[in-house]
Design a protein around this nucleic acid. Structure first.
Length: 420
RNA sequence: GGAGAGAUGGCUGAGCGGUUGAAAGCACCGGUCUUGAAAACCGGCAAGGUGGCAACACCUUCCAGAGUUCGAAUCUCUGUCUCUCCGCCA
């Protein structure tokens, strides 16, 4: 949610920066409604002030047991005006927030400008593409050949975009998530949280998924939604609060399933488990002061990177351009992991600084020398577990169709070193 | 699921329909004292908004929404949530 005050005082800058996200000339329209709203409010407040004064007088007169009918008649006349002005004010407020809550965050000034992912820029690259002496397979070929990954079976239960993992692959999924949580809690300074997977509208509004992107979500039938990412419950942990500055930065992590309808992704990545309706993810969320959020994004990125480095898998980090960022972000880094079977880099993590955008929607503040200000929120995958499993299968595959278990995961396998 | 109780400022907790934005305590901030700290004492301390260059003035907010009233934290209705007891249950 944007600061109306900022739009009012910097309409040109606002329009220039929001244009980078494909929206044109918003400020004038917004400011016109805002002005109508404020004018209405001023008139209303003056009448309310008058009513309050007169009502107080009535109290004084009555306490002296005198007759107040003249003044009471006078105040009665104000009532109609008050209710119609209140109505008008509400209309203007709703009109304003309907527009404001659908406008994406302004891109940070250090984000590359562009319309689509082709304009993303490489921020860093780690390791090298591994060399294989045999023709590499894709993850689902490996998994299906091992008889440990079954898409047909899953579709009987749940339809398309689901998978059943069995035996060592199910265990691998568990080992990966365990490893990630251990790494983030023991070495990277995050506190592990166990959070609800069903949330209310308000929580999704807070992170920016609603009201615009309900299509991407699953509902649970009642007033609950299935979380598309643990970002939603984790970020909302600070909603409607004034946090003591000493508590910041707050770093939390959680391993959860994520549910996405993939409404706009028909025909995209239909083979394999790259894009599923349900997947698990270890999420990182940081709550910081405005001064610290930029460096926190770098720190968060490093935390996510540390997983792939420990797994010794080659990746690159892209800075998303203005046109490719998510709704709530002001800057986003995507970690793209190298998949030899697919001969491509694929997103495995997305780390975003949302500035105060979500904090405004959630009304999350911190106390700073007797001043209250909105916190900054950041979120990142650390990492997507399913895609990490894919990356391991493809990077650790052997000529005979088996998969080596990465060193750091072996302790979760009682010393076993290969999946066969 | 049945019966009852409740929701007030960062927290605990008072609050007759009329100077109650709200007592008191804790926490927090500033000061005195102290070599330093603690204790003690003094002072400050809710949020959001409108108008104003500003000092400041005013408006709104006591879970949410509707209502009664000249006037609601206080009365009525609805919803949400919490707690206690009973039943059921992983």
């Amino acid at each position: 949610m944007h600061d109306i005050n900022f739009i009012r005082t910097n309409p040109v800058e606002f329009d220039n920066r929001i244009k980078l996200r494909g929206l044109t000339n918003c400020a004038e329209k917004i400011n016109k409604i805002d002005e109508e709203r404020r004018n209405t409010q001023t008139v209303l407040q003056n009448i309310l002030a008058e009513r309050n004064i007169l009502s107080k007088k009535i109290g004084e007169i009555k306490s002296k047991k005198k007759d107040a009918t003249v003044i009471i008649k006078k105040v009665e006349k104000l009532k109609d005006q008050i209710s119609s002005l209140k109505e008008l004010e509400k209309i203007k407020e709703d009109e304003l927030s309907a527009i404001l809550c659908r406008i994406p965050n302004l891109p940070s000034k250090d984000v590359p400008v562009g319309d689509n992912e082709k304009n993303n820029t490489q921020y860093k690259i780690w390791g090298d593409k591994p060399k294989f002496t045999f023709k590499t397979k894709r993850h689902f070929e490996i998994g299906e050949n091992l008889n440990l990954m079954d898409f047909d079976l899953a579709s009987k239960l749940s339809g398309s975009r689901f998978v059943v993992l069995q035996g060592m692959l199910a265990k691998l999924e568990r080992a990966i998530s365990q490893f990630m949580l251990d790494k983030h809690t023991i070495e990277n300074g995050y506190t592990e949280m166990n959070v609800p997977y069903l949330v209310k509208d308000d929580a999704l509004f807070g992170t920016g998924n609603l009201p615009k992107f309900g299509e991407d979500l699953f509902t649970a039938g009642d007033s609950h939604w299935l979380i598309p990412t643990a970002e939603v419950p984790l970020t909302n942990l600070v909603r409607e609060q004034i946090i003591n500055e000493k508590e910041l930065p707050m770093r939390v992590t959680s391993y959860t399933p994520c549910f996405r309808s993939e409404a706009g992704a028909a025909g995209k990545d239909t083979r394999g488990m790259l894009r599923q309706h349900q997947f698990t993810k270890v999420e990182l969320v940081s709550i910081t002061t405005p001064e610290d959020s930029k460096q926190e994004l770098e720190r968060m990125l490093s935390s996510a990177e540390s997983i792939l480095q420990d797994l010794n898998i080659h990746y690159r980090v892209m800075t998303l351009c203005t046109g490719d960022m998510g709704f709530a972000a002001n800057k986003t880094y995507d970690i793209e992991v190298w998949l030899p079977g697919e001969n491509a880099y694929r997103e495995i993590s997305s780390c975003s600084n949302c500035g105060d955008f979500q904090a405004r929607r959630m009304n999350a503040k911190y106390k700073n020398e007797n001043k209250n200000d909105f916190v900054h929120t950041l979120n990142g995958s650390g990492l997507a577990v399913g895609r990490t499993l894919i990356a391991i299968l493809e990077n650790y595959q052997t000529a005979d169709g088996n998969v080596e278990i990465p060193k750091v995961l072996q302790k979760y396998f009682n010393g076993q070193t290969t999946i066969t």
